[in-house]
């Protein structure tokens, strides 16, 4: 499997993602540039965290108009894999590759801390191998991460198993106090109907290195690698 990590001006988790995929997991990984249109034949495009184009307007609102995003949309439409983490997830909702929107955190503050996630469905490549009763410790770092979708969309997401993760307590209980940003139904990540486009606010690439004393994120990547199929 070949990965491509997009650098937008203002991306700041691009190198972390490359380090995780290339050095941590041993996957072929290339850097993609926002002005380019060549996806270099990657199987999965990763949109990393950061503040694309400064995000002074609304997170991800400008990035969706970049040349590379036109290609990413085509790639997704062809069934190609796309993963958006944090700012990448915001870009995916702005591009409407996944449903819903990401609003300012309920506290109106930026929040960086470890949170716990429970897989909500095993139908996405990223969650297929996960233990649905386990709480995975994965950090968040965002100011606009409160997931929102209307009732109809939420029903569809739930019925079709498109909710990937919910925020939970360390024992797995899904509670209001475990919800760091006020996300509706504690939703931390969703995928599209085709399950080839996945977006999540928490950063699995920050929990994938023994030297950082947390490797819970590796399970998510391993699941991805086990369940992605070459298109």
């Amino acid at each position: 499997m070949k990965f491509g990590v997009v650098t937008f001006p203002g991306s700041n988790c691009d190198q972390d993602m490359i380090d995780t995929l290339r050095d941590g997991l041993g996957c072929e990984t290339v850097a993609l540039w926002h002005k380019d249109r060549d996806l270099q034949g990657v199987d999965m495009v990763v949109l990393p965290g950061g503040f694309s184009y400064g995000d002074y307007l609304r997170s991800g609102a400008i990035a969706r108009f970049s040349p590379i995003m036109e290609e990413v949309v085509k790639h997704a439409d062809r069934g190609g894999y796309v993963l958006g983490v944090c700012n990448g997830f915001q870009i995916l909702t702005e591009t409407q590759l996944v449903p819903g929107a990401l609003l300012h955190n309920a506290s109106h503050k930026f929040i960086c801390k470890n949170v716990f996630l429970r897989p909500a469905s095993n139908l996405s490549p990223m969650t297929a191998d996960l233990n649905e009763n386990k709480a995975y410790k994965i950090p968040i770092a965002h100011g606009e991460g409160r997931y929102f979708a209307d009732e109809e969309t939420l029903k569809l997401l739930n019925d079709q198993g498109q909710v990937m993760f919910r925020y939970c307590e360390s024992d797995g209980a899904i509670t209001d106090s475990a919800n760091p940003n006020g996300a509706i139904q504690n939703i931390a990540g969703v995928c599209n109907e085709g399950r080839n486009v996945m977006g999540m606010m928490p950063h699995p690439e920050r929990a994938a290195d023994e030297n950082l004393l947390n490797t819970d994120g590796l399970a998510l990547f391993h699941s991805l690698l086990n369940h992605m199929v070459t298109v």
């Binding site: 960086c112 801390k113 950090p139 770092a141 290195d209 004393l213």
Partner: peptide, 29 residues
């Protein structure tokens, strides 16, 4: 002081060990 520090991204760069387990000094790999 977590009310303060939670508002700072302490983990970007995937080098800082201290968010997960603190030492008296911050340890950056």
């Amino acid at each position: 002081k977590h009310w303060v520090y939670d508002q700072y991204d302490s983990m970007v760069g995937t080098k800082n060990r201290s968010t997960n387990e603190a030492s008296d000094a911050a340890i950056v790999n």
